[in-house]
């Protein structure tokens, strides 16, 4: 985290806006919002120095529910927008919020390249394995047999494994959280924000409306039984074999983040013209 280091005596409430979320009662995203504000308070970040960038979908409504600067952009492109912002404003703490449709489907290519580019930002994907805002279509993380109006009898397509993809693409920090444990999630988010480079945090966040079965997640999640690793080989084996319910920091890399030098007076513009003079 290269943002401001001044610590304020902050309460989570300082980071909440007055807007009432449009989420369904019982949606996991309420807890994710709570974890955001707790993490920001824990870090003592001035809210005006945080930018929360998102795309489209239920989870992407989160920026306006914070009291930070926000950008609710087009579907799937939040990581690119955030990259432009962070590279030119390294003083800001940049958080990108997304969902499994926005982040893994339409935004899939940007996910690969954001991991690879390793710009210092934290990417939080609220995964509910369904398109909620459009009323229940399968996403890249939906189970193959899950029945929907768009795909009667299921998709028959194996789900995407975001954590493995993140590791293979070069993400510098990989964690999984459960929305129903907001304090633990806040701690991990704070750690992800502190960690330099591209941090990826997948939050299992149930959709109570279109995936009532996900209410069972609270019984299924468990703290990861092995400690975090910085060994990509170990991490790969572990992520390939886990059942998707191990919670915790799973990988912490040490690649230097990409931050080109910017600012400064630079040369006079007339210097540039010399290219063209005979």
């Amino acid at each position: 985290m290269s943002g401001p280091t001044t610590r304020h005596a902050c309460k989570p409430g300082d980071y909440k806006s007055e807007l009432k979320p449009i989420w369904c009662p019982g949606c996991g995203d309420y807890h994710v919002l709570m974890s955001f504000t707790r993490a920001f308070a824990q870090l003592g970040l001035p809210s005006e120095n945080i930018a929360v960038v998102s795309g489209i979908g239920c989870s992407s409504r989160i920026p306006a529910y914070t009291n930070c600067y926000g950008f609710h952009g087009v579907h799937g492109r939040s990581l690119a927008l955030a990259a432009g912002l962070k590279v030119t404003r390294p003083d800001l703490t940049v958080i990108v919020a997304s969902g499994d449709g926005d982040g893994y489907s339409i935004g899939g290519n940007h996910f690969l390249h954001a991991c690879r580019r390793n710009i210092d930002m934290t990417y939080v994907v609220m995964d509910n394995r369904i398109y909620g805002m459009t009323k229940g279509q399968p996403s890249p993380t939906t189970e193959p047999e899950f029945d929907t109006a768009l795909t009667p009898g299921g998709t028959g397509v194996a789900p995407f494994h975001p954590l493995v993809v993140a590791l293979a693409s070069g993400a510098n920090f990989i964690a999984r959280c459960f929305s129903g444990a907001p304090n633990e999630t806040a701690d991990i988010l704070a750690e992800a924000i502190r960690h330099p480079g591209f941090s990826f945090v997948e939050v299992l966040s149930p959709c109570v409306t279109f995936r009532p079965d996900e209410k069972d997640w609270k019984e299924m999640v468990r703290p990861a039984s092995v400690p975090e690793t910085s060994d990509q080989g170990k991490a790969a084996r572990r992520l390939m074999t886990d059942d998707g319910f191990n919670i915790g920091i799973l990988y912490r890399g040490h690649r230097p983040p990409l931050q080109p030098a910017i600012g400064g007076a630079g040369v006079e513009l007339s210097e540039l013209e010399k290219d063209f003079e005979l």
């Binding site: 690119a80 404003r89 800001l92 290519n109 390249h113 030098a261 630079g266």
Partner: peptide, 24 residues
């Protein structure tokens, strides 16, 4: 002159990157 160019993964990223930078 104190600026920077970032290579994007596609044109969708390029246009969104400049929107993000300009927002800042």
């Amino acid at each position: 002159v104190g600026g920077v160019l970032l290579q994007a993964e596609d044109e969708l990223a390029a246009i969104n990157m400049i929107i993000g930078a300009s927002y800042g």
